[in-house]
C-alpha cells in the first residue's frame, strides 16, 4: 500500500498553552483514519494545521501527491494551489462555514471556478449532480444557506469538498448533524467514492459507533496528545489506555433499559506519559 500522508512531531500552542503536542501518524492511500478524543483536545487544531489553515509551531506534514512527496509547509502559495485541489476539508460547523451571502450554486461552483474547470453549463450540471448525491433537492441551488436546516447545510459542505474529486478529504465532524438514515447514506457515498476513486479520509468524529463502522484505523487524542493508535477493531476491543476505556464506556446505548454508566474518572489513570 502506498502512503499518502505522513505527519511528524506536529506541535501547536496558543499563547503558553500547548494544544497539539508532537503528534505523528501516517495514512495509507485509500484508507480511513478516525480521530477521536476529548472535546477541546486539539483535533480541529491538528487537522487545520495539516491543511495549513493554521501555522503549526514545528513538525512536518508530508504529502505524496501527483507531484511526489512534498512538505506542505514548505510550499509557496503558488506551488500549493494544485494541491488544494487534491486535499479538501469539511468543516465542523455547518453554519459558519458557508458564506451567508452566496447562493448554494455559487458556493458549490466556486472550487471549480478557482481551478478553472469546465465551462458554465458543465459546472452547473456538476453542481446539480453533487446536490443529488448528497440527497438534496437540486432546485435548492438558488437558495441561500440560511434557508436550510443544520443537516442540509452540512451536506452542502460535503458537496463542496467532494466536487473537486480530491484525493484526501479531512472530515471534521462531518456527519454529526445528520439523522442516522441520511448519515448512513452519506457514509455509503463516501465509502463508494473510496472504492471507486481511492479517496483517503481523515475522519474526526465523536460518534464512536460511526468511527467503528467507517474507519480502518483510529487515533485517540487526549489533551493534545495521541494516547492510542491502531486498527479500529483492536482499539475498540482491547483498549490500552484508560482514556479510551472511558470513552468506550460512555457510549449511550440505544436500549432504554441499559443505563448509561461511564467509568469514574477518579478511578482511572489519565496521566500522560
Amino acid at each position: 500500500m502506498t502512503q499518502l500522508l505522513s505527519v511528524k512531531n506536529l506541535c501547536k500552542s496558543f499563547g503558553d498553552q500547548l494544544i497539539v503536542n508532537s503528534v505523528s501518524f501516517d495514512v495509507n492511500e485509500s484508507s480511513t483514519l478516525g480521530i477521536v478524543g476529548e472535546s477541546g483536545s486539539g483535533k480541529t487544531t491538528l487537522v487545520r494545521s495539516i491543511l495549513r489553515a493554521i501555522d503549526p509551531d514545528s513538525g512536518s506534514v508530508r504529502y505524496n501527491g501527483e507531484a511526489g512527496w512534498q512538505n506542505l509547509h514548505e510550499l509557496s502559495a503558488k506551488e500549493l494551489l494544485p494541491l488544494r485541489r487534491e486535499v479538501q476539508m469539511i468543516f465542523q460547523d455547518p453554519f459558519a462555514s458557508l458564506n451567508p451571502r452566496m447562493t448554494v450554486q455559487t458556493i458549490l461552483e466556486e472550487p471549480l471556478v478557482i481551478h478553472d474547470l469546465g465551462d458554465k453549463a458543465w459546472r452547473k450540471q456538476r453542481v446539480m449532480e453533487m446536490l443529488e448525491k448528497v440527497q438534496l433537492d437540486p432546485s435548492s441551488a438558488a437558495r441561500f444557506p440560511h434557508a436550510f436546516s443544520g443537516g442540509q447545510r452540512q451536506r452542502i459542505g460535503i458537496a463542496r469538498a467532494l466536487i473537486l474529486e480530491p484525493r484526501l478529504v479531512v472530515c471534521d465532524e462531518s456527519v454529526s448533524a445528520l439523522d442516522v438514515s441520511v448519515q448512513s447514506q452519506i457514509l455509503d457515498l463516501l465509502k463508494a467514492l473510496q472504492s471507486e476513486l481511492g479517496l483517503t479520509y481523515l475522519f474526526v468524529a465523536h460518534d464512536l459507533r460511526v468511527v467503528r463502522e467507517f474507519c480502518d484505523e483510529v487515533l485517540v487524542m487526549y489533551s493534545g496528545n495521541v494516547v492510542e493508535q491502531g486498527p479500529v477493531e483492536e482499539v475498540f476491543n482491547s483498549p490500552d489506555h484508560d482514556y479510551t476505556r472511558l470513552l468506550l464506556s460512555a457510549i449511550p446505548s440505544p436500549d432504554p433499559d441499559e443505563k448509561l454508566d461511564p467509568l469514574d474518572r477518579a478511578t482511572l489513570n489519565l496521566q500522560l506519559a
Binding site: E38, L208, L247, A250, P252
Partner: peptide
Amino acid sequence: DEPTTALDVTIQA
C-alpha cells in the same frame, strides 16, 4: 437543539 452533537461521549454523558 442537538446540544451534544459537538461533544465527546464522556462529556456528553
